[in-house]
Design a protein around this nucleic acid. Sequence first.
DNA 1: TATATAATGAAACATATGGATCTTTTTCAA
DNA 2: TTGAAAAAGATCCATATGTTTCATTATATA
Lengths: 291, 291
Amino acid sequence: MPLKEQIIAQYDAMSPQLQRSARYVLEHPEEVALVSMREVARLAGVQPATMTRLAKFLGLSGYDELRAHYAAALRQGGDGFAAKVRQRVEEGSEALEGDIASHMLQGLSAQLAKLSEPDSLKRLQATANRLRSARKVYVLGLRSCHAVAWHFHYVMTLLGDRSVHLDGPGGTGGDALIRATSEDVMLVISIKPYATGTLELAQLAKEQGVGIVSITDSEVSPLVALSEQAIFCPTESDSFFHTLTPALAVSEVLCSLLAEFDRPKALEALQQTDQHLLNLNTYSTAIPKRQ
Amino acid sequence: MPLKEQIIAQYDAMSPQLQRSARYVLEHPEEVALVSMREVARLAGVQPATMTRLAKFLGLSGYDELRAHYAAALRQGGDGFAAKVRQRVEEGSEALEGDIASHMLQGLSAQLAKLSEPDSLKRLQATANRLRSARKVYVLGLRSCHAVAWHFHYVMTLLGDRSVHLDGPGGTGGDALIRATSEDVMLVISIKPYATGTLELAQLAKEQGVGIVSITDSEVSPLVALSEQAIFCPTESDSFFHTLTPALAVSEVLCSLLAEFDRPKALEALQQTDQHLLNLNTYSTAIPKRQ
DNA sequence: TATATAATGAAACATATGGATCTTTTTCAA
DNA sequence: TTGAAAAAGATCCATATGTTTCATTATATA
């Protein structure tokens, strides 16, 4: 689509608000075609006028012309491309071409879809409930599961200060447990092969009366015996390695559920975080100049 | 689509004008979704009121509801996920608790499926190729993207010693670049809001002649200007936070592609790793006893 | 620092939209 | 042929839409 290229090409020359609207248009072409301008503006977090300005900026006569472009694209795509993808998926393993990537992605997609079955959902909800009432949440995940543990912790720090990540240089990771009590909960993430360190720390925490909830890969995982709640996620992939994508997804869902419990408070915390990071100049949208 | 069936079933019971409108709707579903009611009426050769009457005849509350059906159908071809987000927004916050998790997981599943479109696959392959020929691979991902960067690095260390993770205590993360050359490649992971530190380090590396490839969220990400190759992955979710699940999936696919380039060597490296970790008693399948 | 300029937000406007109402036409049984 | 009932057409209304204008706020320049 030439219009898309044009938006990308002119993006850098746009004002911040125009960029915002342009970005939304790039990422949600169907919405542009199907929904009113004011609605698109609302979704993009922009004033209605900005959408008109975007269209003019792109050299079009008005917003309607912009929509016309995307409507035309959708008309073609209707039974064109998307249908083919779906067809490919339905054909299953038929896709040859040595297309490892496609296989993996579709497999992962299916695994996530499976996670939305009632049993998983119930476990997610139960685990979120348990975490909700905790004074502090200790997060433990070693080796491959470090990524998931860290990410969970990171998101939780955006929301407040309840989260403690059990990791640190020089083998000091477990030290934070010193003052853990039975009011606290530990979220353990571990998949096969289970890291000895994870099991030891979890066991220790349990002996201190800390409640354990876990994200793991099987009903027969050693973590199950320690845990009040467990969520099971698949780790199989058709590559050499186990996949952590479902585990990360589960962790993200947990974060969301926790945030939903108290929307207003979550929003407030996020705004506070935003302000803090703004003060620190943490983020940028252009390549910074150095001298 | 059940609505289509319904129209067919009730067709015989309609008056001539209603049939005319129904027929047009059946034959031009995209128009119904994309165009105003009056316009559809004009195209169908029918009075505007007839379209309203058709909708009511079908038991719908009004024409808008009829259009909503066809819009939803069109969206499934295109994105699918954005629609779900939108729907949530419209429903307001009254979505049932249990549905949040389910929504999120299904949305993520759709996003991963979308990553297996030809364009993404081409980008994945090209990026893997570029990484393959590198002497060293520097991996950079700060803040939320740390999880992905770390996981990529971790898997790469299982395969060999080409990977260097640009992270470290005391702000020493960038030091490893000191000896980077044009034979090396840097994998940068960053999504909006882009961490200033990431952009700065990537820019610096590029000036040193290091090739840049990136995983980011948009064609208009600042990383695109720096990168020889870029892979785009969605980050939208219907929660407060951006999702990193697609980015992690992409990173896992990259690892697999890299391993596949030389299966025997990858296998050997993994066995070596296994042996090493075995010697260290890193893993266990039962809860360890302490005394 | 003061001033010019661009960017943004808010409000006002003309118009198009979907729906409701009322009138005319058609249909068909008595 | 006539009268009742259904269908179709015409008209009107409140609302939502895309656009423009103007005031306000950032941003850059001198």
